[in-house]
Amino acid sequence: MQIRIRETDFTLLAEKALWRPDTAQLIIADIHLGKASHFRKAGISIPADSVLEDMRRLDHLMKTQQPKEVILLGDLFHSSYNREWHLFEAFLESFPDVRFILIKGNHDILKKHRYELPNFSVTDTLEDEQFLYSHEPLEHATKFVFSGHVHPGVTLSGKGRQHLSLPCFHVSSNQAVLPAFGKLTGLYILDRNERDSYYLVYNGMIRELR
């Protein structure tokens, strides 16, 4: 789905990622890699296969979009180090020509040396003339802000007392919050307002709520 922000085209992807064609940037929030392993290491038996699914989706996106740069809007890795990190290292190696930039999130607590990889860098925020990239949503006087952290979702209610909660992109006049990419993540249900736009993601589809 195409949207236009500050005279720039963006594509909202049903894979829960954002694509900026003019700069070939792929923007992804809250992958929470390593979550399953973190649990398993502590003796909590969550099936480890769920991990590979996120990696597969990531790989698929790289191949279909062919980005030059990937901006990770924080919470890339769920907690302290575990071996799942090497899956991500291997993934980086397979795309040596792509730059990966991590905007540090509250979950990104790995030791510095883990991030010392050739095509990878870490920063607190990132900005260009028009846009600012942050982990947590924030207001900026002039720039439009892209963020994650919230894991936004909306609940639809209708006749017959039906309710359905779905992840969404939340876009307002000066901010956009991306849905969480990782499978092992929850939803935070937003209170909807008239001014903002909400783009629902379900079953590999994306659709605006008007």
Binding site: G43, I46, P47, V51, N82
Partner: peptide, 17 residues
């Protein structure tokens, strides 16, 4: 379930209970 987290341990798995 309590020794291997319900599956065979893969290369990246550090299941421990």
């Amino acid at each position: 379930f309590i020794t291997r987290g319900g599956q065979s341990l893969g290369a990246y798995d550090e299941f421990h209970k």
